[in-house]
Simulated scan of single mutants.
Amino acid sequence: MSPRILFVEDDFELAKLIGEFLTRNGFLIHHIDRGDTVEAAIAEHDPDLLLLDIMLPGKDGLSICRDLRPAFTRPIILLTSVGSDMNQVLGLELGANDYVVKTTPPAVLLARIRAQLRQHEPQTIAGSRPATPALSQVLHFGRLVIDAANRDVKLDGHSVVLSTSDFDLLWLLASQAGETLSRDALLKALRGVEYDGLDRSIDVAVSRLRKKLGDDPNEPHKIKTVRNRGYLFVRSGWDS
């Protein structure tokens, strides 16, 4: 599945040029032009990376970056028309992962985006290598089929659209079906960080998976919450 980028830029001509270039290079681009609609767009489109202009109507990029962290754990790249050292330092301190001047050649921006996505690729629970499934693997659980080669999920024969990070979480849970995985283990495997007792990103992602896969959010029986332990992918939960 192509990585998804939420591109926030109020210069429509620049947005069109960059958006078309990134689309040609394999990305799915959703463009918005106001800062005060970013959080709603993230909730709707679940992007793998946020490409964010600093000067925006509604809400500026630095404020957006500050307010999104730590809830939004994926890469944020700030765009600016002025290469100010102060803005760069402030942006990085507020949680941005990178800072790019708009005059930067598109190929360099592309490389910076790919570098950030690589750095945020999931790792194994042991932490030794990325948790990318072998391309030949397909997991079958009754009505659910997870195809690693095509990063495709089908439920009752119909494709389920998942973001890159949600697919990685589903694969990790499903490949260890029947085992309870703690939030700490999942965070280490997917993002290489330890659970601090406050991070709710795994809970949010599991809730999103349940919704997309038709699990009952009040009494889930496909991806269960095991109190004080973590999450359990149930093998038999997909049979009916």
Rank of each mutant, 00 (worst) to 15 (best):
A40I: 10
L62R: 09
P57Q: 09
G35Q: 02
P75I: 03
F21S: 00
P130N: 10
G61F: 13
T37P: 00
I29K: 02
D203R: 13
P130S: 09
I64N: 12
L51W: 11
R118D: 14
S2A: 03
T103H: 08
V193K: 15
K16A: 15
G230K: 06
P70I: 07
A205V: 00
G95N: 11
P75A: 09
R229L: 14
L169P: 04
L78E: 11
P75T: 04
S81A: 15
E20C: 00
P133M: 10
D60G: 13
L186K: 08
T23H: 04
R191L: 11
R151D: 05
V206K: 10
N150K: 14
R235Y: 01
L232I: 01
P70V: 06
A43S: 13
T23M: 02
T132N: 12
V206C: 10
L169K: 09
V100H: 05
T23Y: 06
P57T: 07
R235E: 15
A111T: 05
S2P: 15
G157R: 03
L139R: 04
V108F: 04
A149R: 06
A149D: 04
P47R: 06
L79G: 12
F72E: 00
L14S: 02
S175N: 12
P47G: 07
S201A: 10
Q137I: 08
L198T: 07
G83M: 03
L6Q: 11
D48V: 05
G95H: 11
G35T: 08
H120W: 12
H140G: 00
F233I: 04
D215Q: 07
F167M: 12
A185P: 02
P106M: 01
E121H: 13
A185L: 06
S163W: 05
S182T: 14
D166I: 00
P217L: 06
I29G: 02
Q176S: 13
E121I: 00
G58S: 10
P105K: 09
A40Q: 14
D168R: 05
I146G: 03
H158S: 12
L51M: 14
I32M: 14
L52Q: 02
L94H: 11
K222L: 09
P122Q: 01
P122S: 11
H45A: 00
L155K: 03
A111R: 13
D67Q: 14
L181Y: 08
D67L: 08
D11R: 01
L6A: 01
V234D: 10
P220L: 08
K59S: 10
M86D: 08
S165P: 03
L50E: 08
I76L: 07
W171P: 00
L68G: 05
V153Y: 04
Y195A: 00
F72S: 05
D196R: 07
V145Q: 12
R210P: 01
D48H: 13
F233S: 06
I223T: 04
L14I: 09
D147C: 11
L22P: 07
T132P: 00
P105I: 06
V160C: 01
A96F: 05
V8T: 01
E121M: 14
R66V: 00
L186F: 09
S207F: 07
D11Y: 10
S240C: 06
